[in-house]
Design a protein around this nucleic acid. Structure first.
Length: 758
DNA sequence: TTTTCAAGAATTTTT
DNA sequence: TTCTTGAAAA
């Protein structure tokens, strides 16, 4: 055994050790937050290998890319790289996508099938709804997609849907009786496009393993040791796959914590973990209850919270760590103040206690909340990194280029084709595209094949036909390059040929320049990808690259310098991570818990688990903030303290009521009448704010702008103020921008920088 | 067919 | 607020 292993084994506690060393048979590890479950899992893998188990026969499944990456890194530290590379380790979706590529033809796909992301699915559903002549009001694409997703996660095919009275009735009540037709058409179109959506990756894997016993046997024999992390978040479809694969050898180890089940919206079924013991008679159960991560105050506060949930496995999380600070709660006047408070808390710690920025994480319920924090951080020069959110790969310009690449690999990919057949514009309009869609249905061919085989039977102007031929010829020429060029050469050639950079250059906007930078970034990413792969002697073709990015949400920026920065992410994304100090913002009713979850006990309990997850990310310090006024949907909404704050045992928390001089606090809404503002201030009397100062500050800021002041705007550039109307905080200025012409801006929004006062 | 502009919707959470 | 969509104009 490697030294590093031996020293590691000694650092495990009793139950951790037992769980890690039991190589054979089914086991379940019920692991509380911070109980070192990743250590156990990684150690277990390393131990298996040290005992001579072939890394190729180990399958390790996680839920998020982030978790997979972390796991790979940590296993890599314990095992030789040459060995760890051979372990099949990744998310359910990515692992089974790999297998499906190998087995694709059994199911009628080719191995170059495309993976549709949510956006692709939405677009396809939208166009189906349109083609069927249905109204978008009763048939909302996103709702339809969710519904389809739920059905697929439970392996309910179109046929079984159609024969299920209850399911159909549900849709009739929801006023979408034709849902089944849409589901059918969607399924057909995906298949015709040689494409699978995220759910298909699991559905088709089930189909594969069910229909082809010899294939099932092959993978059963291959994956003799299976580990599943976050088992509480498996859905029915995933559950069945794991069960089938483990059926022969029963060497299955699942790890989970029912208190951290937070993915029921995508079909996670908590019963999978609660019933695991019924599935395998000889199962051994290990409980990890000692928390190594957090202080006593945090652990106890979290326990007091989760005790409000009815449905849970019995376990008691405890810790030997120091008492630590109490959980800090801060009430803020507005979301702006919340941003300031968070920034202030971070700066204070960085200055006084020499903390690193990377010790801090800001967690929020919804992605939209990140914006105000970002603003505040930029103002205060705090470096930060956002995880998730609008992913790099979701950006229009990136999706467009990927669509060209996808179409080159799989020309049946309908969504990619529709996306780019007229982008950059080449004179093929919607009318033409609609005709092609109709023809593709009549001839039961993909749009691309219709163009190639049946274009002469379709009524289209000859001029337009030529343009279509040009387009197809271009794609055909890309196809001939696929075999001879690596992904980077191909991607750069294609980018050049389609003239997308020129297109954005001609636009000449700041946005256009940004898009060009993103395109360059993408090409760098491809380059990086092949460099890495070349080192490992792995294939570097375009297909391989597309496979890699299909489910990637995070774009790896290759900054070697690893800048010390604060992490911003949703609570969901934070699962499995830990930070010395965690700020959970927006602890308000209707936000956290989300308003969508309030009508059912299950929904509310899931929100509570979500908060539990958030709170238990903290090692030393947890800060919770909530506001009285939050800017949402372009309006200021009054908000109230989350019920979850009340549920924390008060002996572990402390309200921060200090009066920090808040400086210029801008009120963000013109629609609030002065009187109502006054009322709000009255409510806050004797608390932390000194209101008059706020108003005066704000107004004095605005008063600085005068006619003929020269200002700079982040988008419009430099300009001169022509006139100012309106009162105080509602002041508007007519500004002549030297490059962009005259604009009328609200002073308090515009964030103008004064360059010169004449 | 393409571009522009105004009105209306939007915010759970991820693969 | 920002993003998307649809209609009208070019």
């Amino acid at each position: 055994m490697k030294d590093i292993l031996t020293s590691n084994i000694n650092s495990l506690n009793d139950s951790q050790k037992k769980a890690a060393l039991k190589m054979h048979g089914p086991i379940i590890i019920v692991a509380g937050a911070g109980s070192g479950k990743t250590r156990v899992l990684t150690f277990r893998i390393a131990y298996l290998i040290s005992q001579g188990i072939d890394p190729f026969s180990i399958l390790s499944l996680t839920f998020t890319n982030k978790a997979a990456k972390e796991m790979k890194k940590r296993v890599g530290e314990l095992v030789n790289e040459s060995e760890s590379r051979n372990i099949w380790m990744g998310t359910f979706h990515s692992i089974f996508a790999k297998i499906l590529r190998i087995e694709a033809n059994k199911l009628g796909y080719t191995s170059s099938f495309t993976i549709y992301d949510t956006q692709d699915s939405d677009r396809l559903i939208s166009s189906i709804i349109k083609e069927m002549g249905l109204s978008k009001d009763s048939y909302k694409p996103k709702q339809i997609r969710n519904r389809i997703s739920t059905l697929k996660n439970n392996l309910i095919t179109v046929e079984s849907y159609e024969s299920d009275f209850e399911l159909k009735e549900y849709d009739e009540i929801a006023k979408r009786p034709l849902f089944g037709k849409i589901y059918l058409e969607y399924t057909k179109r995906c298949f015709k496009s040689n494409s699978m959506d995220f759910d298909d990756l699991l559905v088709k894997t089930n189909e594969l393993l069910n229909k082809f016993p010899e294939t099932l046997a092959k993978y059963q024999d291959r994956f003799r040791y299976i580990l599943v992390d976050e088992y509480q978040d498996t859905n029915h479809s995933q559950y069945l796959i794991v069960k089938m694969l483990a059926d022969k050898y029963h060497n299955i180890c699942v790890v989970g914590d029912d208190s951290q089940s937070i993915y029921s919206f995508r079909g996670a079924n908590i019963n999978n973990i609660l019933n695991f013991q019924k599935d395998y008679e000889e199962v051994e159960v290990f409980k990890l209850e000692q928390n190594y991560r957090s202080t006593k105050n945090i652990v106890k506060a979290a326990n007091s919270l989760i005790n409000h949930n009815k449905f849970k496995l019995e376990k008691t999380i405890w810790t030997n760590n120091e008492e630590g600070e109490k959980v800090i709660i801060r009430k803020c006047f507005s979301d702006n103040d919340e941003g300031k408070y968070v920034a202030k808390s971070i700066l204070e710690n960085v200055d006084k206690n020499k903390s690193k920025y990377s010790s801090f994480a800001i967690l929020y319920r919804t992605n939209a909340q990140s914006r105000i924090i970002e603003e505040s951080f930029r103002k205060n020069n705090i470096p930060y990194k956002i995880y998730g959110g609008v992913s790099f790969y979701q950006r229009k310009e990136i999706k467009d280029i990927l669509a060209y690449l996808r179409l080159t690999i799989n020309s049946n990919d309908e969504e990619s084709l529709k996306r780019i057949i007229n982008f950059p514009p080449r004179g093929i309009g919607n009318t033409t595209i609609d005709k092609l869609i109709v023809a593709s249905k009549t001839y039961d061919l993909s749009i691309y094949d219709v163009i190639i085989e049946k274009i002469n039977f379709i009524k289209i102007n000859s001029g337009t036909k030529d343009k279509i031929f040009d387009f197809v010829n271009m794609i055909e020429s890309f196809k001939t390059m696929v075999k001879n060029y690596d992904a980077f050469e191909l991607a750069s050639q294609i980018t050049k040929r389609i003239g997308i950079v020129k297109f954005y250059e001609n636009e000449g906007t700041a946005e256009g320049i940004n898009r060009i930078q993103n395109i360059e970034e993408l090409l760098n990413g491809v380059k990086n990808f092949i460099d890495e792969r070349n080192q490992l002697n792995e294939p570097v073709l375009l297909v391989n690259f597309l496979e890699e990015v299909a489910m990637a949400t995070d774009f790896e920026v290759q900054d070697s310098s690893e800048i010390d920065s604060v992490s911003l992410m949703t609570v969901h994304l934070s699962k499995g991570l830990e930070f010395p100090c965690v700020c959970i913002i927006g602890m308000e009713e209707n936000l956290f818990p989300s308003s969508m979850s309030l009508d059912s006990r299950e929904g509310l309990e899931e929100e509570r688990r979500l908060f539990y997850v958030a709170l238990t990310r903290a090692e030393k310090k947890a800060i919770l903030t909530f506001t009285n006024n939050r800017y949402r949907w372009g309006k200021v909404i009054e908000s109230e303290e989350s019920r979850f704050i009340d549920e924390l045992d008060s002996s572990f928390v402390k309200y921060d009521k200090n009066n920090y001089n808040e400086g210029s606090l801008l009120l963000t809404n013109p629609t609030i009448k002065y009187k109502s503002i006054k009322n709000k201030f009255r409510k806050l009397e004797n608390s932390e704010f000194t209101h008059n100062e706020i108003n005066n500050n704000q107004i004095s800021e605005i008063k600085k702008f005068k006619i003929n002041t020269i200002v700079k705007h982040s988008i419009f550039g430099k300009g001169i103020i022509k006139s100012i109307d309106g009162q105080k905080q509602d002041s508007r200025a007519k500004i002549y921008f030297y490059e962009k012409g005259e604009k009328n801006l609200l002073l308090k929004y515009a964030k103008l920088q004064i360059i010169d006062t004449e």
